[in-house]
Structures are given as structure tokens and as C-alpha cells.
Simulated assay, not measured.
Amino acid sequence: MSHPQLADIHARIAKAATLANRKPEATTLIAISKTHPADAILPLLDAGQRHFGENRVREAQAKWPALRDRYDGVQLHLVGQLQSNKADDAVALFDVIHAVDRPSLVAALVRAMDKSGKRPSCFIQVDIGDEPQKGGCAIRDLPALLASAKDLPVAGLMCVPPADVEAAPYFALLAKLARDHGLTGLSMGMSGDFETAVMLGATHVRVGSALFGARAQVAA
């Protein structure tokens, strides 16, 4: 079944990758389904999309077990901040965790993985724009955090650049930090800037509103 918005995003990823002499398939599109009900997700699943991102463990627990029973190959990405006391639940449900940003969370995830035997890939979130409210470790703290995460399956780095400014310098900085630490994964780019991210090496882009429309409002 076709999905016009999904087809458009894939075409734009392919064009950006070609301009940067990259293969389009080197970038994974994560559909950010947070706050959207199962009925809104089904058309994307029917069109073949299999990578989805959620912000909250509890919301994902309510939606995804039933959807996974119906569709094979779904990969769930936790893209929001994770409380250490939810580490067990996150490891049980998610295939990739994108916002590992402090030693206490690293320790909780290591314990949860050792206990369950399940080892989701992890991205270390970097506070690339020095905006502590967004989460992420400070750039100066990245070497120490990576050292503490040696027992985690670290796939790469993740960032959320400052809003309303040109994202390219922040994406380029994240790519440099990843190279400096021997990491290949780059989770960067959202609906407004994913093409720039692809051109600068993103391996994962997190697209929500361009696929789903405006986000539904939920109570905190």
C-alpha cells in the first residue's frame, strides 16, 4: 500500500544522499510515532515502514505489543529522555535507545541488559548546542561517558541541535566527535533538517511531523 508522505521523505533522503555521494540505504528513517494512536501508525506499517520512535516507555508499552503481533520486523527506538528506574522496561521493549546521557543511566542499562540478556543498541546523546534542558552530556564530558559505557553496545552519537538556527554546524560537529571516538552511528536530523543531516553523514534520521502531521497534544 502506498503512502505519499513516506514516499516523499524517502525520495528526499535519496536526493540528499546522492548529492553527498552516499548510498540512500545508509540512512535509516525512524518514523516518530510518539503521541500518535495505533490507527495513525497502521498506514505506515502497511506501506512497509518498520522503524518507529517513541518518547515514553509507558506509551510504547500500550501501543506496540499488539502492533508487533500483526507486523514482523518492527524496530522500536526510544528517542526521549529515559529515567534510570525505567531501564528494565526500556531494555525489554526497545531495540535501540537514543538518549543515553549520564553515568547513572549507563549503569542502570548495563544492569538491565545483564539481567535480561537483551542488548539494544545505544546512542550517546551529546548536548551539542550547550542547552542542558534538552538533555545530553556536555561535549567536554563525552570521553568520560564513553569510557563508562564500555559495557554497552554503543552504536554512535545522537543530538538535537538548537531550534531556529542553521543545523549544519552542529551536525558537522557531532560527526567529527563520532570520528574522533571511532564511532560510525549518527542519530541526527528531524522533519525540518533531515536532508542536511543526511548530507553530513546521518545514519538515522528521526522524522515525525513530516509523516504524521502536527503532533497530538497529550497531558504531561
Rank of each mutant, 00 (worst) to 15 (best):
C159K: 03
T27Y: 01
N85Q: 14
L19P: 01
Q125D: 11
S209C: 04
L174W: 07
G185T: 10
L76D: 14
V207E: 09
V198Y: 12
L44N: 06
A175K: 11
C159G: 14
L145H: 12
I139A: 15
A17L: 05
R56Q: 14
H51C: 11
A108W: 07
T35D: 09
K176T: 15
L78T: 06
A112L: 09
L200R: 15
R119M: 09
T184C: 06
R56L: 08
L109W: 03
G192P: 00
F94W: 04
T28F: 00
A92D: 13
L200F: 04
N55V: 01
T196W: 03
L142M: 05
G48V: 08
M158H: 07
A175R: 13
I124G: 06
D141M: 12
I9H: 06
K63C: 04
K176P: 01
A147V: 11
L174E: 06
V207Y: 10
G135R: 13
E166G: 02
P37R: 05
Q81R: 11
F171P: 04
A16L: 15
Y71N: 12
N21Q: 13
A144D: 07
K134M: 11
D180Q: 15
L44D: 09
Q217H: 10
K23P: 00
H77E: 13
A31F: 13
A11I: 05
S116E: 09
L19V: 08
A155L: 13
V154G: 09
P65G: 15
M190N: 11
L200K: 14
L42D: 08
A168H: 00
V96K: 06
S33H: 03
V57A: 11
Q133M: 15
L173E: 15
